[in-house]
Simulated scan of single mutants.
Amino acid sequence: MSKLKIAVQKSGRLYEDSLQLLKDCGIFINNGKDQLKVSVDNFPMEIMYLRNSDIPQYLEDGVVDIAIVGENLLVEKQKKITVVQKLGFSKCRVSLAVPKEIETDDLAYFQDKKIATSYPNTLKNFLEKNKITADIHVISGSVEIAPNIGLADGICDIVSSGSTLFKNGLRETVTLLQSEAVLAKTSSLDQEKEVILEKFLFRIKAVLKAKKSKYILMNVPNEKISDIASVLPVLKSPTVIPLAEKGWSSIHSVIDEERFWEVIDELKENGAQDILIIPIDKMVI
């Protein structure tokens, strides 16, 4: 039987979260020290630990079938690769930044300026789209130091919290693109491996849906059940279980993490009591 070859970073900011996602999907890895290729016993998959910058090329060439990789890297490398699922972790943005003493956030500041970056293609396309002419200096690492040593007037780099910029006397001005970890696939995937990928995607979606949801239980007076049910953003309809105390029921449902406090306030206003929230491990729809 074919095995789906998946590439993950052998080190870097996506490494731990990538392995955790595989574990949450029931894929258990027994890799020895310094192993760069590992077979999985309980799923038709083979894991390859690769250097982050090499992954897009390996995908395009079909050396690996799928990969967990930063969306920003795919944009920069401009390869013929399909994103099949956004994964919700390692969120960041590619942004322009300037020395903190520069007061303007206007993109026009960069006209005829020098910009240091590790993302020359992303930056070049953005500047051309906005009709800005600038001198791009490509640096493989430690981009933030460039303005301090007189190499550039500003930088274009990945930003997460912004703390690295702050420590180097820089501040963020313009965001070029938002990014997160994604599952991407090669264009040369055969039918047998497509079937395996669909099974893997089914597991991923169950895990991601669970992370965005909470299981909720509450006690409600029977005359308030219809009011409470109208508040709950449920999958179909809430579960209603009569309590031993006459005139009361327990309602069970699922709520979206993003609307959590808003929904809780509405439930209390409509008579819900003894509200219990439980995390969800997996959610299969």
Rank of each mutant, 00 (worst) to 15 (best):
D135Q: 09
G62T: 05
Q35A: 04
V284W: 10
E16A: 13
A134G: 15
P279M: 00
D190H: 07
A181M: 10
V94H: 06
M48R: 01
N31S: 10
Y215H: 11
V263G: 01
G247I: 09
I6F: 04
S188F: 14
T104M: 05
V138R: 12
V98M: 01
M48C: 07
I255W: 08
G26H: 09
D106V: 09
Q111E: 06
A108Y: 09
D227E: 01
I66N: 12
L74Q: 05
I251V: 15
P99W: 01
Q57M: 07
D274R: 03
N270E: 01
K100E: 01
T122M: 05
G12Y: 03
E76A: 03
E180V: 13
V195N: 12
K37L: 02
Q57F: 08
N270V: 00
K23E: 15
I216M: 06
K282M: 04
P242M: 00
A146P: 15
I66W: 02
K79W: 02
V143H: 07
I196F: 07
E257D: 08
S160V: 14
S53W: 06
V231K: 00
S142K: 11
P120V: 01
K193C: 02
V63Q: 04
Y15H: 10
N130A: 06
R51A: 03
Q57K: 05
L243Y: 08
V63M: 03
G62F: 08
V284F: 12
K209R: 06
V8C: 03
L235Q: 06
L59I: 02
E180P: 15
K10S: 07
I55S: 01
A229M: 02
N222S: 06
I136A: 09
S18K: 04
L177C: 12
T82Y: 10
L74C: 03
C156A: 09
I149M: 03
K37G: 02
S140T: 09
L127P: 15
P99E: 00
A244Q: 12
V182E: 09
D54V: 07
S250T: 15
K185R: 14
I132G: 08
K129C: 05
V8H: 02
L123K: 12
I278Q: 07
L107W: 10
K185H: 07
S53G: 14
I149E: 02
L276W: 11
K80C: 11
K199L: 05
S163Y: 11
I145P: 13
S118L: 13
V263H: 01
I251Q: 01
E128P: 06
P147Y: 01
E76C: 07
K80H: 11
K214S: 05
K205S: 04
K199W: 03
L217R: 11
N130P: 13
N222D: 10
Y215G: 05
I27W: 03
K167N: 14
A116V: 07
S179T: 07
T164H: 14
D54P: 11
L123D: 08
G271A: 02
G150I: 09
E172I: 10
I155A: 02
D41H: 15
R93G: 13
